[in-house]
Design a protein around this nucleic acid. Sequence first.
DNA 1: TTTTGAGTTGTTCGA
DNA 2: GTCGAACAACTCAAA
Length: 457
Amino acid sequence: MVDIVWFRRDLRLGDNGALAAADQDVVPLFVLDPVLLTSAGGVRRERLLASLRSLDSSIRESGGAGLLIRRGDPVDVLPAVAGEVGADRVLVSGDYSPFGLRRDRRVAEALSVAEVAMASRDTPYLHPPATVRKGDGGPFSVFTPYWRVWSGLSVPAPVQSSPRFVTRLPPDDLPSDAPSRHPPSDDRSLGDGAVGEAAALATLTGFADSGAAARYDDDRNRLDLPGTSQLGAALHFGEIHPRTVLAHVGADTAFVRQMCWRDFYADVLYRRPDAAWHNVDRRFDALPWRDDRSQFDTWCAGRTGYPVVDAGMRQLAQSGWMHNRARMIVASFLTKDLLLPWQWGARWFLDHLVDGDVASNSLGWQWCAGTGMDPSPYYRIFNPVLQGERFDPDGAYVRRWVPELAHLPGRAAHTPWDQPTGYDHGYPRRMVDHARARDDALDAYRAVKAARERATT
DNA sequence: TTTTGAGTTGTTCGA
DNA sequence: GTCGAACAACTCAAA
């Protein structure tokens, strides 16, 4: 008999608990689910296919026949492949997204009919959902107490494995856009780093050894510096496991806290799957979001007239990635300055970010919008000019992504309205007045709060 | 049960 | 320019 290792968001061979659990010949399988392929943004779809090519090569290099790729609903594909290759077990790393949980339940059921076991032997997290609990056993809803418990747990060590891949596979069922066996060697480096396990390890060692990890607390907010890890997409696709990341950066850096946020948001979404698209705090359903598609389009296009907002939105559109600080700035602008629903922004991010992940994305947006658990206070409204001047002090980030402002020197790039030549190259005027928009947002949030208080008395 | 301390990432105003 | 206070009370988590 053989084990099928069904790859999903763990596209690597090293530090892979599902692979390590295999004790028979391994058939490595990936299922191209049309539902997922059409819902993922183009950038992430392309990244996925490139990552699959990389995984396929790695399997061949370690003596196997390559990665078996089938197209279809996993509920049909898994039992079919199990029958073809004579497998009695399917090993996976757990997928805790609402979609993944639902799918895996259905697949396990379909497999059990065929008397094939499905076993989850790893997760994409350091401490997966439902494992970090309060003293009374309940789940946390505030980050800091979660962090206190999380950081006191022992750090899991990377997992070793030496799987025996089968040397013969049944034929692939490749769609026209699937990875070919002999891909062109021009895999684009999408947004935050080159693709695949080896590239992720190289990015990680660069981050750890260059001192960037040690400077992370200071530099991660700087829009104009390579201060972030650039590992978001690699972690999203599981080209690298956070265990391996921690083993390199050490357990005491500010970066570790970000790993904890990743686990925390996965935990929150696990027990509140509706949080993906609905306010965690339903009392905020009363917020008077506007319904202005034209303003939304202006935001998407990076033509708001606020340089740092537009730089962020254009970085996203052009590279598939946006600096985390910029994500907060543009999110604050959409929800507070324009009073447009956070779901619109979250959808746009998911469609365009190479590292887009439902848990971190939706809950991050809810934090900005003030509708989540443990949210930002409603009066915390980012001033796009101050944020730009603080985190892009020389205007380099703006000039890089907004060519109409490339002629403005230094921090003048943040205030084209104060420069005599600020609008000479077609940069748009400010779509709203921030000071007034801020007052409007405060009024709107205060009104919801007042209504809430009336309702409770 | 009650109490106590604390809460990712900001901005503005006035001294 | 720099600093502290106000924003506005509310909820969580633990003792």
